[in-house]
């Protein structure tokens, strides 16, 4: 393969990794705080719909983004109410959120826009266009490095850069701030946090809302950045791949980025390898599609390293007994 093909595959990798990365970091906050979240998919889907619907109606990409994040935040609040305040089963709350999002987005979409669940196609004003980074055009002529800069690093939309910026920010928040320390503590030993006079409930709500914010961005990426409009079930299980990536990355931000890039690469490869032979063998695309899930299961089983989640994850905190 020559450089152009490699670059275009990697370029697709970055694009395909972005929603995974946003959703993966989203899940990281929630799960690090001890709230399992299998509702990432639903929050993204709801956000994608909210963003596309508002962007289509107002013709304003920022209002669309705001709506997407708003929808995702309120979904998170609902999930928080169930899983934190009412001490309901966190997993079941996630299932309910996923189903609610799948049903409501299609139902309202058909009702509002009468296009079989699709939102109207967006104009260039109402979606995030690709940005050209400074000097990208000038450097495009420089062999290799210039090409990498102009082809691979430049020319993505805003949300892509936000996603990759969120990695160092998350690392900093998690490991270098008081909030991050408390967040990690509340996922490992909420009793200790409570004893120190810090509210477990408040911390978990904060975490869940950050999850909502990031899922909102991920959802908006689908409908008003990568695509131009919402389509039925457009997140297509990416929320679960993000969940897999989170486990694969052992709930750590930097490994999360590399895992999402790996899973994004597999996705890009799968698109590129449609019906091509490698060494005379046709690799079924389904095998590549299933690879992220298989890898995660293998890791979870402890055959390649060991993924151990936050200790207090999945259990609502009860102050007294």
């Amino acid at each position: 393969m020559d450089l152009v093909i490699i670059l275009s595959t990697l370029d697709a990798t970055i694009r395909l990794s972005t929603p995974l990365l946003l959703a993966c970091l989203a899940g990281l906050y929630s799960e690090r705080a001890g709230v399992f979240d299998i509702g990432l998919e639903g929050k993204m889907l709801a956000a994608a719909f909210g963003a596309a619907a508002v962007a289509a109606v107002t013709n304003n990409v920022w209002l669309g983004l705001l709506a997407g994040v708003g929808v995702s935040l309120s979904t998170s609040a609902l999930q928080g109410a169930a899983a934190i305040t009412l001490k309901g089963n966190q997993l079941i709350a996630g299932v309910a959120i996923n189903m609610l999002a799948a049903g409501l987005t299609t139902f309202l979409g058909i009702q509002w826009f009468a296009q079989g669940g699709r939102t109207p196609a967006l104009t260039p004003d109402s979606r995030f266009g690709n940005m050209t980074l400074p000097f990208a055009d000038e450097l495009a002529g420089v062999p290799v490095l210039g090409q990498i800069y102009s082809e691979l690093i430049s020319g993505h939309n805003l949300l892509v850069y936000i996603a990759f910026l969120a990695v160092p920010i998350t690392w900093f928040v998690l490991y270098r701030t008081r909030f991050g320390l408390r967040l990690r503590a509340v996922g490992e030993n909420p009793k200790a946090v409570d004893t120190a006079g810090i509210s477990v409930i408040a911390l978990r709500y904060q975490a869940v809302l950050i999850t909502g914010l990031l899922c909102g961005l991920a959802g908006a990426f689908f409908s008003i950045a990568q695509g131009s409009g919402f389509g039925n079930n457009m997140t297509a299980g990416k929320g679960f791949i993000a969940l897999a990536a989170l486990i694969f990355a052992k709930w750590k931000p930097v490994p999360a980025m590399f895992t999402c890039l790996l899973f994004g690469f597999l996705d890009a490869l799968q698109i590129r390898l449609q019906n091509t032979d490698i060494f005379g063998v046709t690799v079924p695309v389904q095998a590549i599609q299933a690879l992220p899930y298989i890898l995660t299961v293998v890791l979870l089983a402890g055959f390649i390293g060991k993924a151990v989640g936050p200790k207090a994850g999945g259990v609502a905190y009860t102050k007294e007994r």
Binding site: A81, A83, I92, A93, I97, M99, L100, A102
Partner: peptide
Amino acid sequence: EMVVVIQALVILFTGAMEGM
């Protein structure tokens, strides 16, 4: 899809928000 919404709400209320 209305039915999916009802079903999701049943799961939400009977499963996750039982504490209500």
